[in-house]
Design a protein around this nucleic acid. Sequence first.
DNA 1: TTGTAGGCGTTATCAA
DNA 2: TTGATAACGCCTACAA
Lengths: 339, 339
Amino acid sequence: MATLKDVSELAGVSQATVSRVINGTNRVSHDKKLNVVKAINKLGYRPHSIVQAQSCSRSGSVGIIVPELGGPFYSTILDVVDKQFRQLGYHVVVSAGSNTEEGQKESVKFLLSRRVDALIVHAHQLSDDYLIELQDSGIPIVILNRFIPEMNTSCINIDNELGGKIATEYLLKMGHENIVCITGPLDKSDARARLQGYRNSLMAAGIAYDETLVAEGDFTEQGGARAMRKILKRNVQFTAVFASNDYIALGALEVLNEEGFSIPKQVSLVGFDDIHFARYMTPKLTSVNFPIEQMSLESVQLIIQKLSKNKSDVSFKLLPSLVIRQSVKDLHTTLNINN
Amino acid sequence: MATLKDVSELAGVSQATVSRVINGTNRVSHDKKLNVVKAINKLGYRPHSIVQAQSCSRSGSVGIIVPELGGPFYSTILDVVDKQFRQLGYHVVVSAGSNTEEGQKESVKFLLSRRVDALIVHAHQLSDDYLIELQDSGIPIVILNRFIPEMNTSCINIDNELGGKIATEYLLKMGHENIVCITGPLDKSDARARLQGYRNSLMAAGIAYDETLVAEGDFTEQGGARAMRKILKRNVQFTAVFASNDYIALGALEVLNEEGFSIPKQVSLVGFDDIHFARYMTPKLTSVNFPIEQMSLESVQLIIQKLSKNKSDVSFKLLPSLVIRQSVKDLHTTLNINN
DNA sequence: TTGTAGGCGTTATCAA
DNA sequence: TTGATAACGCCTACAA
């Protein structure tokens, strides 16, 4: 690889001059400039961006931590974030693949050691205190999909409680009263919030909260299936299931099908997150839309704001909405038709 | 951020000594070592990995170019590649999001300017010559899912023709003789190869190739749907569809459903790639498995081999296999049952 | 075992 | 407009 020095020698000028024509930081006489350009082309020279950054004491990169690369959720985030930052002249360093606290701390260290200019973090294993400390250490940071009171200007969330609420309200509106709820792991705040939305809606509708209709899953297909089986064993009456995410819905769907329940004929189903294949399931899954793109966009916005110390408008709490497809049956029309 | 210098001053030793205890490159007396470690902890110092690499005239990173981040295919590749390289002490710089030649050249430049130690490329817009030139310029490079004769030790492919063959053979074995084939865009070699596999199987079975049963799609759901409609308009007889990828299969499935064909009862369907949601479709899609993980693993292997100049065993042509699910009907049993 | 000094490739500062 | 030269933070001879 050709270096600045090579170019300067070939062009018969100083390195400084070459640097100037590259960055346009200063006027350079026309003929010298021409020589430099020629030399650059001849040598196929391109500046070493990392070292460039080093000289400016910024790296021109931002780090992002996600638990995994696969799956539609995180890849969407990365896609959007990467596109945005690229446009802004930054580049994104991804650290993925750890679901443990230790692993995620490793990720932080890794990115810090690469001197990223800012950090976007989607990690549930890191403690609040750790993240607060990180922010206090001076690096601009944005926390995705999680709320830490002490960092309220750094967290971007969706309103999970609202999501649970609109899902449940929709089922209620469709005439369902005995609604199963399969929750996510309840040590996670978003799982709790979604459950809370469910409870609130029931309460508002004057329906008592029935514990036997609720089971804890773990945001996976298997977990959803397990929880669904548990519910079925309880031998309770229900006409609808609110699954706290689409994977859970998927697991529940399979179990219900196995047990001979047809959806939505006998049991209605609502998911959460509206992941990519929700629309490809049979029946197409009605699901609470998680505004991933918007969240990603906002996070970039917020980082830029922090980097430039400008105030700008960012929504810290994004609003989910319901995507209605075919997995819920309207009990009212049904009663009329007497089917 | 604390620097080497800060640590050395606090510990009362030279920077060289600090460097030594960090890298363990040399024996350091116990007490000085202790001081250094203390200083490092007190300052929360972590080495600047980029500069570290710079001093060693390698970056410790490898670049990977993919057309997009979203979707199950590329995210799987990235996931595997990233995990592997991380274990090996490398880190991966991703450049994504361009389907144009210009954009992908940009990506190459970008990664080169970051002085990645090697390159993994999944890009169909880049010309053979360009890639050959790139390799000749000295950077270790691996080409994914594409074959360039001049770079036969740098390309990792699956045997697309074999894939087309096993899909078609399976349908033949199940008694289907009038098999529609929806191809990918025929300017792409993998699409052509899959079609060729289809043709070869038919020929081997003594069935004439019928152009009216073939339509070109573009590897998307919409393209698949469009091609399927085209076929239906031709009013030809068929009992099965071989879709050149799962998105095409998806599009075809929807059109067939719309038109009242039930699958697999009236029409059987085989996809290609076995992407994540194939198993969640209804009916669960029988599909040719694309060994993405294996391909990713091999690419890492190959890069490492090139980097260390060791010879190692890499498969340059991976073998697909058929994942049989529920979207194909056995016409033999059917005839007996007379259903 | 330890420190000094030079180098990695660039930008920024200061004279000329 | 130009060119030396210092600086960025680290590693690695070389010398002590």
